[in-house]
């Protein structure tokens, strides 16, 4: 059985990197198998297309709702469980409860956003994934996920043919 490996080609500029991605698509690789690695963001489609769906907003919303529930229970629930009568004030006072609910809603929404972001990115990822420090210095990487063997050779050939200054394999130090 063959394994999937990631091959990375490094390019000096945007145009050659985009041409390499295009050559991979022409060579039979799907958009899903190709990604760019760069030190700065490019709009979707400039180098590669990232077609995956994002659930980040929903995760934030879920976090916010959980936080609101928690805040409400903390302020109103505990007051209701252990009632303390002060003057003619209500046991559950809506405005203060609203403020505590709001603060926890925002806190959990923020935590949800950060947590969701890492979840969607697949980070933390301390495993030795294919990467080159040259990317931080301005090189643009085109990475392709392929079967080892014939498909791997084909990917290397395409990446080299497109003018890669360097080719790296997954696991290479």
């Amino acid at each position: 059985m063959s394994n999937r490996v990631e091959i990375l080609g490094l390019y000096k500029d945007l145009e050659t990197a985009a041409a390499a991605a295009e050559a991979l698509v022409q060579g039979g690789f799907s958009e899903k198998e190709i990604t760019s690695i760069s030190s700065g963001p490019y709009p979707d489609g400039v180098i590669v297309k990232d077609e995956g769906r994002s659930f980040l907003r929903w995760i934030s919303l879920a976090g916010g709702m959980m936080g609101a529930g928690f805040g409400f229970l903390l302020a109103a629930g505990t007051a209701w469980l252990y009632p303390l009568h002060t003057g003619d004030k209500p046991i559950i006072s809506l405005f203060p409860v609203g403020i505590i609910t709001f603060e926890f809603m925002m806190l959990f929404a923020i935590l949800g956003t950060i947590g969701g972001m890492f979840l969607e990115m697949g980070l933390p990822g301390f495993k030795n994934k294919v990467y080159d420090p040259g990317i931080s210095q301005g090189l643009i990487g085109i990475s392709v996920s392929c079967q080892d063997g014939a498909q791997q050779n084909k990917a290397v050939e395409i990446l080299q043919g497109a003018g890669a200054v360097k080719i790296r394999n997954e696991g290479q130090p």
Partner: peptide
């Protein structure tokens, strides 16, 4: 955290 700067990472980051 193992950030590489893939297109997907940048998109989620934005």
């Amino acid at each position: 955290m193992g950030w590489r700067g893939t297109a997907h990472e940048w998109r989620v980051f934005a």
